[in-house]
Amino acid sequence: MIGMLFRSQLRNVLRSRWVYVHAGFFAVLGETLYQAGGSAAGMQVAMMNIVLIVLPLIAIVYGAIYVHGAREFYEVLAAQPVRRRDIFVSSYIVVGGALAGCYILGAGIPLAVHAETCADVASAAMLVAAGALLTLVFTAVAFAVAIGIHDRARAIGAALMLWFYFSLLYDGIVLYLFYALSDYPAEPFALAFTFLNPVDLARIALTMQFDVSALMGYTGAVFEQLFGTGLGLAAAFAALLLWAGVPFLIAQRLFTRRDF
């Protein structure tokens, strides 16, 4: 039954031009950055900075709009003999999977085309994987917000505020805290703060792969100690999965209890 829900929703989403615009955007972006920078490594670093800002924004806005647009459809489905959990899970997999898949396709094309000039294929793969995970994280956040807030404009506003918080505001708050507490050793806290923001987590994990941690001073060395190892990297990706899992479970709980 969940298979039928999945197939139908996937067919619907894959016929939307926006997912192809999403894939095309990253393909064009990657190629443009390569042509401008002249190297795959430069392209990766520049792309990382854009991916970390743009991907969460696209996922959170598209996810929130999708959920609100599908409200009457969800009502029709919930009136059928199916579990609400199945409706929710299939919907999340379709939206998150389509966005992540199109990103992988779009970003993957220029990286694959220029793979022979790429010094470190692993870090390119990391960039693609981290972006896909961030997409799943912010799609889950979007679902939780859009299901929890019934008014469409307020839901999209709240989603945008969350994106703003995780992408920009959070770093400002952390920087202010470090500045205010500059007399104390801040490195262990920096590590903890990193895990409290999925965008920062992805940024730090990727930065370590691009071998530019020396630019980050002593804090960079602390990050290098953790994220530079296979275990640390696995911990970062596990934390990102957790960041997708928690809002997913919250959204699922809201969905199974909501009134249509």
Binding site: S8, Q9, R11, R15, A70, E72, F73
Partner: peptide, 22 residues
């Protein structure tokens, strides 16, 4: 239902087949 809003990109046949499949 009172209002018929469905997945826009599905055809009538695909939509009804999906409902039947549930």
């Amino acid at each position: 239902p009172q209002i018929g809003r469905f997945p826009e990109n599905l055809t009538v046949a695909e939509f009804l087949t999906m409902i039947e499949g549930l």
